[in-house]
Design a protein around this nucleic acid. Structure first.
Length: 605
DNA sequence: TGGCGGTACTG
DNA sequence: CAGTACC
DNA sequence: GCCA
């Protein structure tokens, strides 16, 4: 039933589908792997039904990769015979089929395997019903109600949107690092198998990566900084051979984890690594991380970002598998990849992705403010290739329109001196409205960055105990700053219980000044410490220290550190907990057993 | 095998 | 609710 | 992706 399915589907809120390792699937000899380099997306995209599971496993056996998330590298959509073309397009929320994806019926892989050869997908028996009519005539044909009972069950499954978590299953452990190249070039439907094979062979010849040159690293001199990237996570490191779990700290629970392993315990070095011996490796891994954004595989992306963070801290070049695997957060596959990068100056897998023009389009779209992976992916799927396309053909929210209008500006970094100047401007205005208000610049600026992606302000007042008490002040401030031409747009304003304001500003009186992203956070004095930790970051540090708190049975957020937090299955929080400390940054560190470190040493990314 | 931060706002 | 954002 |  559909209700049940939808319900259970939404229970694991982050789509925890997991990559099912088919280590049990034994591959046929490589020469017989007719699906080598192909990536199959099945509809419905699961293997819950026994027959489909068997078919999928068989395809994997013959070299296919199986994905449950449509992505740039998908080569085939394999459709259950009970479904029509329109069903599939509706399910995928597509208007047209991307030209380089082949849609076939479920018989296609089976027959190909039998004939030991990639068959012509255009043959009638492999086309999905409704496909030809749709492509010939351009009329909106009503869905043919010719479905068996079995079919209706499967269409019910389609109600579940194709979001969340992808699985890419290769038959062997070797997968992506190895020579299993993803073929992502357009494969015209009228290209015959022979030509395809030639093309495939050719594509496997190149090893080095194309530097698509768009990455002028400019000057990111000292320090990293915040908003250039975000959304990684942190977790304990391997117990570093020497220091053992040792005694428990403070009144905390039975600590069955190694606190020393948390990134927040050591933080960043604080040293400004200008040139890192692992720069090239980092560059490639960063692109891999970008690629995994594309696949919506958030956690895999995180793993890459963590690895990048670790490599950045090394002052020697990590060249071999053995060197790499000893480092925290670097496991078997990343160690393999690091070795391959050093050896070949690139990663074969990546080459195919970055050379796909859609990859760049996707990245372009995602750089629009308030456009994320899902929106960007949908637009790419619909065939849009430029910001002009979007302006002309899709409906944009107000913020997205602003994002496009000021696309380059929002990507332009703000020199530290300008942040200081903007800060002074805000401070003067704030104090003139309420002399008791304090203005603190947070974000990468507080971490000492020489340039920032945006400007973050904490607005606080000693005597206050709730952010609402500052709402009126905020209104006066934004009104005033708007009137004098400092604030030029509001992107997000606080709800009645809210505490954040997002918008844009310029330094008045400067010709052709650049629009800057600016954020205000209202903070009562009683929460200043927690807010400082939050607003100083970086994001990796925040995740690490919050995870640490959670392992102790506590909770850290931007308002305070709380104890006695009960959590249910999946760490779902069941209660608020009771406040340990909120006002003093230092005391929060101390309570958690984290050695104090100044903001500059919280750069973990 | 199931974790991987915790929150606020929009549509 | 999903999506996007903040660090 | 990695880790407990």
């Amino acid at each position: 039933m559909l209700g049940k399915r939808n319900h259970s589907g939404s229970v694991p809120p982050n789509g925890k589908k997991k990559l099912r390792k088919r280590s049990t699937v034994e591959l046929v000899p490589e020469s017989e792997q007719i699906f080598q380099g192909k990536v199959f997306y099945y509809v419905p995209p699961d293997d819950k039904a026994q027959p489909r599971r068997i078919r999928i496993n068989k395809a994997i056996k013959f070299g296919a990769a199986w994905t449950t998330e449509l992505s740039l590298s998908t080569t085939h959509i394999v459709v259950d015979k009970t479904l029509t073309f329109k069903d599939v397009m509706t399910f995928l929320k597509l208007e047209t089929l991307p030209s380089n994806i082949i849609m076939v019926s479920e018989d296609y892989p089976i027959d190909s395997i039998e004939s030991r050869f990639l068959l012509d997908p255009k043959q009638k028996q492999y086309t999905v019903s409704g496909y030809q009519e749709m492509s010939k005539v351009e009329r909106a044909a009503p869905p043919s109600p010719t479905m068996s009972e079995h079919a209706s069950e499967d269409t019910a499954a389609l109600k579940q949107p194709p979001s969340h978590s992808k699985e890419l299953v290769h038959g062997s452990e070797i997968d992506d690092t190895s020579a299993r190249v993803q073929i992502s070039q357009p494969q015209n439907h009228d290209m015959d198998d022979h030509k395809k094979m030639i093309k495939l062979a050719r594509s496997m010849e190149h090893i080095p990566i194309n530097d698509e040159d768009d990455d002028q690293e400019d000057d990111i001199p000292p320090s990293r900084d915040q908003s250039d990237e975000s959304g990684s996570d942190v977790e304990p490191r391997r117990p570093s051979s020497h220091n053992r779990p040792k005694s428990k700290r403070k009144g905390s629970r039975n600590l069955s984890f190694n606190q020393e392993g948390f990134t927040c315990m050591t933080g960043g070095t604080g040293i400004t690594t200008d040139s890192n011996p692992n720069a090239r490796t980092i560059e490639i891994l960063q692109k891999m991380a970008d690629y995994y954004v594309e696949t919506k595989d958030h956690w895999r992306q995180s793993a890459y970002r963590k690895t990048i963070g670790v490599l950045r801290k090394q002052n020697t070049k990590i060249s071999s598998y053995d060197e790499a695997i000893r480092l925290p957060t670097i496991g078997h596959r990343l160690a393999l990849k690091i070795e391959e990068i050093v050896l070949t100056n690139g990663l074969r897998r990546l080459n195919d992705v970055v050379s796909d023009p859609r990859f760049h389009v996707l990245q372009t779209f995602m750089n629009i403010y308030c456009v994320g992976i899902n929106q960007a992916w949908n637009w790419v799927q619909q065939g849009h290739t430029s910001l002009e396309d979007l302006k002309a053909h899709v409906s944009l929210t107000k913020n997205q329109q602003l994002g496009i209008e000021h696309y380059d500006e929002f990507l332009t970094r703000i020199p530290r001196e300008e942040v200081t100047a903007l800060g002074n401007f805000v401070r003067d205005a704030a104090v003139s409205i309420d002399p008791k208000v304090e203005v603190i610049i947070g974000g990468s600026y507080r971490r000492g960055a020489s340039s920032s992606g945006d400007i973050d302000f904490i607005l606080t007042k000693r005597s206050t105990t709730s952010s609402q008490e500052l709402l009126e002040f905020l209104t006066s401030l934004t009104n005033h700053l708007t009137k004098v031409g400092f604030l030029v747009a509001a992107l997000l304003t606080p709800s009645q219980t809210g505490s954040k304001w997002h918008g844009c500003c310029v330094l008045p009186g400067i010709l052709k000044s650049i629009w800057r992203r600016i954020d205000f956070l209202l903070v009562p004095g009683s929460e200043l410490g927690a807010a400082l930790i939050y607003f100083t970051g970086d994001d990796i540090f925040n995740r690490s220290i919050r995870l640490l708190a959670s392992k102790k049975g506590w909770r850290l957020n931007q308002r305070g550190l709380y104890k006695d937090v009960l959590r249910g299955p999946g760490r779902v929080r069941l209660n608020e907990g009771s406040l340990i400390e909120g006002a003093d940054e230092n005391k929060i560190f101390a309570a958690l057993g984290v050695p104090w470190r100044p903001p500059e040493q919280r750069i973990c990314n």
